[in-house]
Write a protein that binds this DNA or RNA. Structure first.
Lengths: 164, 164
DNA sequence: TATTGTTATACTCTATAACTATA
DNA sequence: TATAGTTATAGAGTATAACAATA
């Protein structure tokens, strides 16, 4: 009988042999190793937190994304924006309507194709974006707080590789 | 006039100065560097592909996740499962109803708490899971095909760190 | 003839509240 | 009193089809 094995978890205990939380238990499941599951959970949590922080600006993540692209100087048309953000053309219409109604963005005619409309931010839109971007920055900080700066960059690079 | 500069993109061209696709253009935007955006896009694409590959089994990713946990041997209650999968209790009921109706899983009484029900897979359920897991494996392979095996492990580790 | 934005519409997913049976 | 599961219901998100203007 070895005298120097102090803190072993006593595997022979009869009743409370499973004091671990279900979260810990489930981390052993195969599902918990699937990238699809992990990204779904990451995006779910991140989205919820970001929506929460954006709430006092009366914005949701989806509106923020449209506003961000309108502020980016890349002059997206509605169609292009929909493809980039994985949004249906009809959804883009609805989101743009909201932001244009708030005076944050404008639909400008495309001189090269009069069918399409280019989205640009107004001065008020750029101000709103500045406030919103600060909040999403906080959300990202909190979401990634378990990672070192180097790991955060790694994650960004790996994700960019698979989606672009 | 240097004779040995053959394939320069001729930056002084007047008209077609933007031959790049909008996707390339938008990758320069600040939004494209936000982890929230990248994970949302990753999960959107991954989810769509997985749903597509699971379609001939009459399953969607959400059903697959429940089935996977029922097959995992971790004996989740409906409540615990909902927390792990970010699903509302009422959604769990609906998903479990479908899978139980197909004979893939069973609700078993929890001897320690007669209010809660533990989800376990039937033999048919384990067979269905085997087929479905092969398809989600294919989906992951395709989603991550731009990454080396080492990079895939890295990504898994980083994601696990932020969601667990 | 094909494409952009738009509208109307329906469908899926998600969230809320109330109920029951147990604890 | 609080919690697990259930039900009903409403809301948000998403997808589909048809149309007008333009290419």
């Amino acid at each position: 009988m070895p005298p120097s094995t102090p803190a072993a978890p006593a595997p022979s205990a009869e009743k409370s042999a499973t004091p671990e939380t279900s979260e810990e238990r489930f981390q052993q499941s195969p599902l918990a190793r699937e990238v699809a599951f992990l990204t779904a959970r990451a995006r779910g949590r991140g989205n919820a937190l970001a929506n929460q922080l954006l709430a006092d600006l009366d914005l949701k993540v989806r509106h923020f994304s449209v506003l961000a692209m309108a502020c980016s100087g890349t002059k997206p048309s509605q169609r292009e924006l929909g493809e980039f953000l994985d949004l249906d053309p009809s959804q883009v219409v609805a989101l743009v309507d909201v932001l244009e109604g708030r005076g944050a963005i404008r639909r400008e005619p495309d001189p090269r194709d009069r069918r399409s409309k280019i989205l640009v931010a107004t001065e008020a839109g750029r101000e709103l974006y500045a406030q919103a971007a600060e909040r999403t920055r906080q959300a990202e900080e909190q979401t990634l707080r378990a990672l070192s700066p180097a790991e955060r960059d790694q994650l960004r690079e790996l994700l960019a590789k698979i989606v672009f």
